[in-house]
Simulated scan of single mutants.
Amino acid sequence: MSADLVLNASYEPLHRVSMEHAIRMLVRMVAVVEEVREGQTFGPWPRPKGLRLVRYLVMRWRYRHTPTCTKEAVKARDRMCAYCLDPAETIDHLIPRSRGGLVTWTNTVAACRGCNHRKGNRTPAEAGMRLLITPVAPS
């Protein structure tokens, strides 16, 4: 199976799809054939080499300035517990989620399970724990 190129409505390349996916896109009329493979057809359509979407697809992920904040990414950023410098096993929210804290780069740090349980549903200041690592958003 060869992959067919999918272009946005503004002719910028998006990704490649299988022949089956290309057929489904044409049947649903979300794309039109932009370039064909000479002498090859399937049903009433020429076999496409490239498709173009009918409507413009906004690609917000391409214009995001910082990487997505996930548990694995926070643990990879810190590598060790922000409170005792032991190996990190989980993440901890500086402002707990129950108090409106969000999963952001500056509100999460890597932590070992012991420090995470000790801090509990409090801020580090309330728990009497000092941060040894300053959380920053990676570039």
Results as ranks from 00 to 15, higher is better:
residue 64 R to P: 14
residue 64 R to C: 05
residue 66 T to I: 13
residue 67 P to D: 12
residue 68 T to D: 11
residue 69 C to N: 03
residue 70 T to F: 12
residue 70 T to D: 08
residue 71 K to M: 12
residue 72 E to W: 12
residue 74 V to L: 04
residue 76 A to V: 03
residue 76 A to G: 10
residue 77 R to G: 05
residue 78 D to H: 02
residue 80 M to E: 12
residue 80 M to C: 11
residue 80 M to F: 15
residue 82 A to I: 13
residue 85 L to I: 00
residue 87 P to N: 11
residue 88 A to F: 06
residue 89 E to P: 04
residue 89 E to G: 14
residue 89 E to N: 05
residue 90 T to S: 12
residue 90 T to H: 11
residue 90 T to W: 01
residue 90 T to V: 00
residue 92 D to T: 05
residue 93 H to N: 07
residue 94 L to E: 05
residue 95 I to A: 11
residue 96 P to V: 02
residue 96 P to S: 07
residue 97 R to N: 13
residue 97 R to W: 10
residue 97 R to A: 14
residue 99 R to C: 08
residue 101 G to F: 00
residue 101 G to C: 06
residue 103 V to Y: 09
residue 103 V to F: 14
residue 103 V to K: 10
residue 104 T to H: 08
residue 104 T to G: 12
residue 105 W to A: 14
residue 105 W to P: 06
residue 107 N to W: 06
residue 107 N to S: 03
residue 108 T to G: 01
residue 108 T to H: 03
residue 114 G to C: 00
residue 114 G to K: 08
residue 116 N to S: 05
residue 117 H to A: 13
residue 117 H to S: 15
residue 120 G to I: 08
residue 120 G to A: 07
residue 124 P to I: 03
residue 124 P to E: 09
residue 126 E to D: 14
residue 126 E to N: 07
residue 128 G to W: 04
residue 128 G to F: 01
residue 129 M to H: 07
residue 129 M to I: 00
residue 130 R to P: 09
residue 130 R to H: 13
residue 131 L to H: 12
residue 131 L to D: 01
residue 133 I to S: 07
